[in-house]
Simulated scan of single mutants.
Amino acid sequence: MKVKEIIVVEGKDDTQKIKLAVDADTIETNGSAIGEEVLKQIEHANRKRGVIIFTDPDYPGKRIRHIVSEHVPDCKHAFLPKHMALAKYDKGVGVEHASIEDIREALSRVYEVSPDAEGNLHKGDLIPYGLIGGPLSRQRREKLGNRLHIGHTNAKQLVRRLNMFQITKDEVDRLMKEIIQEEKDGK
């Protein structure tokens, strides 16, 4: 699989793993203290070929995604669920720990940011599904994020991400009915 866009990752271990999975170029942020020079490089890469942000599913990865997105708002996004990025022998989490298949799958489900980030979903739309303010809210948001391949979020981030990636109310409704049914069935 060849990836036209340049993939923004956190470090050289991520680059090595991605190159095993796909034919792609990367830019490494070298952690969450992203320098101005790296941001300029990402901005230039985005103008020339496009950029996919593919960071670890942890706090530093989310922070890097946010910093890059703020600086280069029209980047594309790929997400890897946390359970697919866990190290086998230590407590690490990251793209470098994912399987080749999971990396390919994540990169095949890239989202583009909608120019109209306001979208059609609001926090109130998510309350009936127990995604906000309920005892199972966090688990349900995680399940929904995994099925949509948009990463794990808090309630406010979920609304923003659903709208950014133009995910419809009908799609959320369909998936949440499945998730709630599975909970009832004990899956």
Rank of each mutant, 00 (worst) to 15 (best):
P81Q: 09
K82Q: 05
K82S: 02
H83P: 00
H83L: 09
H83S: 11
A85R: 00
L86Y: 03
D90T: 12
D90S: 13
K91P: 07
G92R: 09
V93W: 10
E96S: 08
H97T: 07
H97F: 15
A98C: 09
E101R: 06
D102E: 15
D102R: 10
I103M: 10
I103D: 04
R104H: 07
E105W: 15
A106V: 14
A106H: 11
S108G: 13
Y111L: 09
Y111Q: 09
Y111W: 12
E112K: 11
S114F: 09
P115C: 13
P115W: 07
D116E: 14
D116L: 09
A117V: 14
A117G: 09
G119H: 11
G119T: 13
N120T: 14
N120P: 06
N120H: 08
L121F: 12
H122S: 12
K123D: 03
D125G: 02
P128K: 11
Y129M: 05
Y129S: 05
L131S: 06
I132N: 01
G133F: 02
G133W: 02
G133D: 06
G134C: 03
G134K: 11
P135C: 10
L136K: 02
L136N: 02
S137L: 07
R138W: 02
R140Q: 00
K143G: 00
L144S: 03
L144D: 00
L144T: 01
N146W: 00
N146R: 01
R147L: 09
L148I: 06
H149V: 02
I150V: 03
I150M: 06
G151P: 06
H152C: 04
T153K: 15
N154H: 14
N154T: 15
N154W: 15
K156R: 11
K156D: 13
K156C: 05
K156W: 04
Q157N: 05
L158H: 03
L158C: 04
V159W: 12
R161S: 13
R161E: 10
L162C: 08
N163W: 08
N163V: 10
M164E: 13
